[in-house]
Design a protein around this nucleic acid. Structure first.
Length: 282
DNA sequence: TTGTGTTTTATTGCCTCC
DNA sequence: GGAGGCAATAAAACACAA
């Protein structure tokens, strides 16, 4: 990056000449020189002309326009931010002195840096949630397949049984035990083990009736979420997973962005029965 | 060179905490 | 009430394709 050089022109108070290796000399014209009034208007934190001509600050700095910090300044600020992303007043003044900046500039930089960090963190959290959802969806799909398979098996067996009963002469006496709830399958007692080695009722039942019968209508889950984080207790049957960002080293310095993820164990579906990503709120 | 999209620096207004 | 934080936003600086 070209940080350029600054020359203060004493013959024309308030005007600066900015010379950068890749830039033209700014002198005159709308993009270049700003007079004292303009400067003061744009930089309200300078309360007086005396402050504006503060040699210590303007030895190397440009008050004329918004100016990017040098790579060295950014590097030091980054290092400081890594150590602690909040800025107590003492550190602010120390940093400002070290960098030759106004404390206000240091504070602003930290503020903006926190905002950038937060945005990145949200992106990371989103990615984590997405992959968590995809993994759960794949689990759900395999369970669903297993369910269909078992169901087919049971109906085949039921048919066989019924055929046997028809062939065998109807004998007087106590009638055989009727087929319990035709159309429903007790996966707990099915011959094939659950692929996830988890009791089906734990994963699939609503938890209220204690029934292990798989609901064929599919999942009914979170259909709308307004907030980025939502309480786990509101969504029984959801799986909670903790996601920790790279930037958060676990020391707690990284702020509150240690988020809890609550991925639905079963995805919601649209009208066609196609599973929906619940992060699509529409 | 210019138009356009992105990033960085800075301001404003509101909110919370002491 | 002042200080500091945050979200939203403006505007300058920068990058890059056409």
């Amino acid at each position: 990056m070209d940080s350029g050089c600054l020359f203060f022109d004493p013959s024309d108070h308030g005007n600066m000449l900015f010379i950068g290796s890749g830039n033209p000399i700014f002198q005159g014209g709308p993009r270049s020189v700003m007079n004292m009034e303009e400067t003061l208007k744009r930089r309200p934190f300078f309360s007086s002309p005396e402050e504006l001509y503060d040699e210590e600050y303007y030895d190397e700095q440009l008050p004329e326009k918004k100016r990017r910090l040098s790579p060295e300044q950014v590097h030091l600020l980054e290092k400081s931010f890594e150590a602690e992303n909040k800025l107590e007043p003492e550190r602010k003044t120390q940093l400002a002195k070290k960098l030759g900046l106004q404390p206000r500039q240091v504070a602003v930089w930290f503020q903006n840096r926190r905002a950038r960090w937060k945005t990145k963190q949200l992106e990371r959290d989103f990615d984590q949630l997405k992959s968590s959802y995809e993994s759960l969806q794949s689990d759900y799909d395999s369970i669903r397949k297993e369910h269909d398979k078992l169901k087919a098996e049971v109906s085949a067996l039921t048919e066989k049984l019924q055929a046997k009963e028809v062939i065998g002469a109807p004998t007087p006496g106590p009638s055989p035990k009727p087929d319990p709830l035709p159309g429903h399958v007790d996966v707990l007692h099915a011959s094939t083990p659950c692929p996830l080695n988890v009791k089906s009722e734990d994963r699939l039942s609503t938890g209220s009736g204690g029934s292990a019968v798989v609901d064929e209508d599919g999942p009914q889950l979170v259909d709308s979420v307004d907030s980025y984080d939502f309480p786990p207790n509101d969504y029984p049957g959801c799986v909670a997973a903790q996601v920790q960002s790279e930037e958060d080293d676990g020391s707690g310095k990284g702020g509150p962005y240690l988020c809890d993820l609550f991925a639905a164990a079963e995805p919601p579906h649209n009208d066609e029965g196609v599973p929906l990503g619940w992060w699509v709120w529409s």
